[in-house]
Amino acid sequence: MKKFLFKIIILFLIMFALDRSLGRLADHYFFKTRDGDTGGQINGLLEKKAPILVFGSSRAEGQYVPDVLGKSLGGEAFNAGFKGSSSLYDYALLRLVLEHYTPSLIIYDFSVQTINKSEDPYSKLYPLYPFRSSPSVWELLKKRSRLEPLFFFSRLYPYNSKLHSVMMFNIWKNRPGASNGYFPQRSVMRPVPLEEPDRKEAGERDPLLVDYYKQFIQLAKERGIKVVVVCSPRYSTGAYDIPQDLIRYLEEMSVPFFDFDLNGYPQFSDHKLYKDLDHLNDVGAEIFSELLGQKIGALQFIPALPASTP
């Protein structure tokens, strides 16, 4: 028993020393990155302090071109969309942003996947793990499970699945073509009939995520940020139903809502504008961003935007 305890203690000491030293190193290099699909992009976002922010999932990340939007709206834009994100992640990210500055306009891409039921919704917060020292982020991270804080005793755990990204983005700085969080999708979808018969049906809504969606809107409004919700194009005529209760909520909150349904916008019925059924490619994104910029500009509810927020 003594021998076992002795060896276990030695192993733990080695692990502890490695965890601390490698974790420190990871911290150092992570906060030097400004782009990346595992959280580095958030550093860029917090540094830029752009007055126009785009939130949402991969449908935001690759579809809203900040340069085009910024030009139309007269201010710097940053795309904070994140592949596979949920409304919970968006809400947590907004709270983190608000700890640093207050943007003027948020364009929030709506995608049913961001409010769909998943078995472990808090796992979607993983890009924010390195920001555990932020009180608002920590408050949400802890909610994953009672035992979750135990994992954060490790200094390396926040960098789980991120070390390669930290290394790569310290060497190459940005993803090729990435600019202000936007990551162009250069491939073109194969031609398929517009009405794809075996489209996956929209999943079951998660009341928790619907609630976070509403909290996101509410928080932004409370902080005086203008919000526009957008349902961007998909290569499908009868895509997903937008929950009526959410539309009513947006109306109650006086949040403009643009639905780029293909019936109303037939110019997006061309498969060459898509990377896949759910995502526009770079060409489609440029056209869409231009059009969206004009539509938001026509609202005339945005005050003159500064180039960037101090």
Binding site: L11, I14, M15, L18, D19, L22, S118, E119, D120, S123, R144, S145, F151, S154, L156, Y157, Y159, N160, S161, L163
Partner: peptide
């Protein structure tokens, strides 16, 4: 032996998937 233990433990910590689902 010890290198193997440490490598396994570090791999689990840094690359392992901790999705509770």
């Amino acid at each position: 032996r010890w290198g193997f233990y440490v490598l396994m433990a570090l791999s689990i910590l840094t690359v392992g998937v901790f999705d509770h689902a």
